[in-house]
Simulated scan of single mutants.
Amino acid sequence: MFRLATVFFVSIWVGAAFAQAPQSGSSYPSRPIRLIVHFPPGGSTDTVSRIFGPVLAERLGKPVIVDNRPGGNGVIGAEIAAKSAPDGHTLFVASASVLVLNPILRQNLPYDPLRDFVPITRLVTSPFIVAINPSLIPAASVRELIAAVKAKPGQVAFASGGNGSAMHLAGELFRLLAGLEMIHVPYKGNGPAMADLAGGQVPMAFVDLGSTSAFSKSGRVRILAIAASQRTTLAPELPTAAESGLPNWEALGWYGLVAPAGTPADIINRVNTEMIAILKLPEIRARIVATGSEPAPNTPGEFDGYIKSEIGKWTKVIKEAGIKVE
């Protein structure tokens, strides 16, 4: 009797242990997958998520449900994702702001990007650009722009999509590399910044490539260069910063896919394999390129190294530029 009771209780304990353990890749997924996006519906990040989501669902055999959790510069969505069960049924589409800039600029975050998340893959990249109003600064290259700004130290302003934003930091890196004195004018988003650039309220701006399309076609805005080491297929006619007069100015907008820390490695590798295959599909790539971004998948290890290198790079820029966010 005692032996039977012992076996009974041991069986219950072992069953409970397996029930509480993270799910292995062999039985994954067992239910719908929640894909948290820390932007509202309709933006480029949300659009890209809804492009690859149905294909991922088809390949995994379970629905992938986009869950928009905007607010707090990504903090709300990040906290929800970080505190979710590490079983692969919650994935998080996270931007550079969430994984790199927030931890550098903001105090008392409810998450730590290196401790609370495990990288799966980078999803897309989009180069930042420097644009001018040619009526205010008649420059045809970055080299000419630098000369014009140096002629008026501390008098030329540049716009960005917000204080502490990735575009702001791209502008500060430009300023530091070129040895310039400029005034930063933060806007609440790239749209208002571009509107004022086109209207002549500000002479230059650092934004993402997708925000400039309508304005550059009208001739009211001139894009001088992209902040990348190679020309982009999104606009192959645009020179790199090095070609235009400023070597080493590289600043990419990007976001990637992560999961809560503790998610089993076989699940991470499974999702990574599927996402790399999906992002290489010609029809998926074409739809993503139409949003102003380029698919740029990599391995979990490569993405982890990339995040850490970005933290090191932008920590240095923020310190040298003296950037603070209230």
Score class of each variant (00 low, 15 high):
Phe158Val: 06
Ile146Cys: 02
Leu105Ile: 11
Leu123Ala: 04
Ser141Glu: 01
Val118Tyr: 03
Val130Phe: 03
Ile146Pro: 00
Pro138Trp: 06
Leu101Cys: 08
Val156His: 02
Gln107Ala: 10
Arg106Ile: 07
Ala147Asn: 09
Arg143Thr: 07
Val142Trp: 00
Val93Asp: 11
Ile146Val: 10
Ile137His: 02
Ala94Gln: 10
Ala166Met: 07
Leu136Ala: 06
Leu91Ile: 14
Ile104Gln: 15
Lys150Phe: 09
Pro127Thr: 00
Leu109Lys: 11
Asp112Ile: 08
Arg122Glu: 02
Val93Cys: 07
Pro127His: 01
Leu91Glu: 09
Ser160Glu: 03
Gly162Ser: 12
Pro119Asn: 04
Asn133Phe: 08
Val93Thr: 14
Lys150Val: 05
Lys150Ala: 06
Ser135Thr: 07
Ser160Gly: 12
Leu99Arg: 07
Asn108Val: 06
Asp116Met: 14
Leu109Pro: 13
Leu99Thr: 14
Asp116Tyr: 05
Val142Gly: 03
Leu114Phe: 08
Val93Leu: 10
Ile104Leu: 08
Ser135Glu: 11
Gln107Asp: 11
Ala94His: 04
His89Glu: 12
Val156Glu: 01
Arg143Ile: 05
Ala131Ser: 13
Tyr111Ile: 06
Ser135Asp: 15
Lys150Leu: 13
Pro119Asp: 05
Gly88Tyr: 01
Asp116Asn: 15
Val93Ile: 09
Lys150Gly: 06
Ala159Tyr: 13
Leu99Cys: 12
Val149Gly: 01
Pro103Met: 13
Val118Gln: 05
Arg143Val: 05
Leu123Thr: 07
Asn163Trp: 05
Phe92Glu: 05
Ile132Cys: 06
Ile132Arg: 00
Ser135Pro: 04
Asp116Leu: 14
Gly88Asp: 04
Ile120Phe: 09
Ser160Ala: 14
Gln155Phe: 09
Ile137Arg: 00
Arg122Phe: 03
Val93Arg: 06
Pro110Val: 08
Leu109Asp: 07
Ala151Ser: 15
Ala147Thr: 13
Ile104Ser: 07
Leu145Arg: 04
Ser135Ile: 06
Leu136Glu: 01
Ala147Gln: 07
Pro103Arg: 07
Asn108Ser: 14
Gln107Ser: 12
Pro119Lys: 01
Gln155His: 09
Pro119Val: 10
Val124Gln: 02
Val100Met: 09
Arg106Phe: 07
Leu109Asn: 11
